[in-house]
Amino acid sequence: MKKSERRAQILLELKLHPHVRISELAERFGVSTETIRRDFDALSDDGLISRAHGGASAPSHGHYPSLDERANARIEQREGIGRRAAQLVQPGETLMIDSGSTTIQCARALAYLGTPCTVLTNSLPVAMTLGHGAAQVILCPGEYLPAESAVVGADTLEFLGRFSVDRCMIGASALSAEGPSETVQGFAAVKRQMIRRSAKATLLVDSEKFAKRGLVHVGALSKLDTVVVDRAPTGGLHDALSDAHVTVIVA
């Protein structure tokens, strides 16, 4: 069994049982307990499981505003960021756009500009926004999150891994000197995969999220090429972005 298949089976087990044990899964899959621990570490880093003594459980969900709630907050700032980010896209480019209230604004701006491009996305609103215009849209498969109108999970990551694109446009729950981070379960893994498969990575984030940390770390600032914001970062975040040679664009 391939690593990706084994990890998908682990996630399936957690849908059927509240807790799974390392020793039981090692015996079932015919692998060492260390192999299962590495699987657990990877799935935990992606926010897909919660580690527990001797095993793992499904992730616990604290309160985090839904996509609809976030879409109605700081609208002016996010619209400005989305418009400026859309201007970076050149005709004919290939893109990955992840789910989020600010990336939806970017999709709306791209649709308004009529920029011909190819877009892969895990977001239904992004796909629907761009699907009737000049863009060719490819929608990822995966596990559907109703509150986010998006898909995540092993199938989403495997699908994204088949493509190489010119640029990705991603959002984040928070941005600190350590890099962007995410609160929605499974989103961090999608963002990491999009960054890996893109020649350039652009982060869209409003200043309310500066100097904060989400549940799951996405990656170092050095993984980003550009950050589009509504207000220039200051202090330690400004210095960290400069040291990482990240271009900051203020909308």
Results as ranks from 00 to 15, higher is better:
Thr247His: 03
Ala232Ile: 08
Gly142His: 12
Leu130Val: 10
Pro91Ala: 07
Gly54Val: 15
Ser149Cys: 04
Glu158Arg: 06
Phe40Asn: 00
Ser164Phe: 05
Leu157Arg: 05
Ser149Lys: 12
Gln193Leu: 07
Glu79Ala: 07
Ala56Leu: 08
Gln77Asn: 06
Gly236Met: 02
Ala199Leu: 08
Gly92Asn: 10
Leu110Cys: 13
Met1Val: 01
Gly179Trp: 01
Leu145Thr: 11
Leu221Gly: 13
Ala111Glu: 07
Gly80Glu: 02
Ala177His: 08
Glu208Arg: 10
Asp166Ile: 04
Pro18Arg: 07
Ser99Gln: 06
Tyr144Phe: 11
Leu11Lys: 09
Ile22Pro: 09
Ala85Pro: 03
Gly219Gln: 04
Val246Lys: 01
Leu130Met: 12
Thr121Cys: 11
Val137Leu: 13
Ala134Leu: 14
Cys168Ile: 08
Pro141Ser: 01
Ile138Asn: 04
Arg37Met: 13
Met96Ser: 07
Arg21Pro: 00
Tyr112Glu: 15
Leu130Arg: 07
Val229Asn: 01
Pro116Ala: 11
Ala189His: 04
Leu237Thr: 03
Arg196Asp: 15
Gly214Met: 15
Glu27Gly: 00
Ala244Cys: 05
Gly219Asp: 00
Ser57Arg: 08
Ala154Arg: 09
Thr115Asn: 13
Ala240Met: 00
Ala73Cys: 06
Leu48His: 01
Glu27Gln: 07
Pro146Gln: 04
Glu34Thr: 15
